[in-house]
């Protein structure tokens, strides 16, 4: 992958270098023109701009790409766990915990209290309707409300974290009400002991 990217960068750099180097600023000479037939003014010489203006940009040797795609830092990763925490659903453009959602959270809280070593990341998700960024914020509110309720039920906040994926990770790829209902959710991912 990195090779490929390097290739792209070289091409991009090459394009810029070549076009800025090759494009000569020439003047189309007016004396080349035959005298116009009718009352037309002689064409004025027009300075040619280089097709690429950004001559100052010197494509560097590409060692910087090392930083470019640093490997994902070894942070907490989802792990296989012996228990399964059910996801909860939300209404459109809402982060209010519904009655069924609160029931599910109670069950999840009991499971977490029985397994005191487990850490959980709550993921907030949205359906595809709505703006990406608004949904990022909305997903976060969903996750935070779920977290707050679990804390209320006795789960230590230190064992919980949240992240929002907005509408970027739908559970169902469909574009109908059924899919949207499935996608408006909070998931509970066990991150380790």
């Amino acid at each position: 992958m990195r090779q490929k990217q390097l290739g792209y960068l070289i091409i991009l750099g090459g394009v810029l270098l070549l076009s800025s180097a090759c494009a000569k600023k020439e003047v189309v000479k007016s004396e080349e023109l035959a005298p116009p037939a009718v009352a037309a003014k002689p064409a004025e010489p027009v300075p040619l701009p280089a097709p690429v203006k950004e001559e100052a940009v010197q494509p560097q040797p590409l060692q910087e790409t090392k930083i470019a795609e640093a490997p994902v830092k070894e942070e907490a990763k989802p792990v296989q766990a012996e228990i399964v925490l059910s996801r909860i659903a939300f209404d459109f453009d809402s982060y209010i915990l519904t009655q069924p959602a609160r029931e599910t959270l109670k069950i999840n809280a009991e499971l977490l209290l029985k397994n005191p070593s487990l850490k959980v990341q709550i993921e907030g998700h949205c359906d595809e309707r709505g703006s990406d960024e608004y949904n990022l914020a909305l997903g976060e509110k969903r996750a935070r409300h779920a977290l707050d309720y679990l804390v209320l039920l006795g789960v230590p906040a230190s064992r919980l974290s949240i992240v929002s994926y907005g509408k970027e990770k739908p559970a169902d790829q469909g574009h109908d009400e059924a899919a949207w209902a499935k996608n408006r959710r909070a998931e509970f991912v066990i991150m380790g002991r």
Partner: peptide, 30 residues
């Protein structure tokens, strides 16, 4: 999201070098 949550990155286009400029806790938006 390449480091697990949404952060803001700045990339130099012609060199490809880049740096994560905003990784505050919670969501870093657009």
């Amino acid at each position: 999201f390449k480091k697990g949550k949404s952060d803001l990155y700045r990339r130099e286009l012609f060199t490809g070098s880049e740096v994560r400029i905003a990784s505050y806790s919670g969501t870093n938006g657009f």
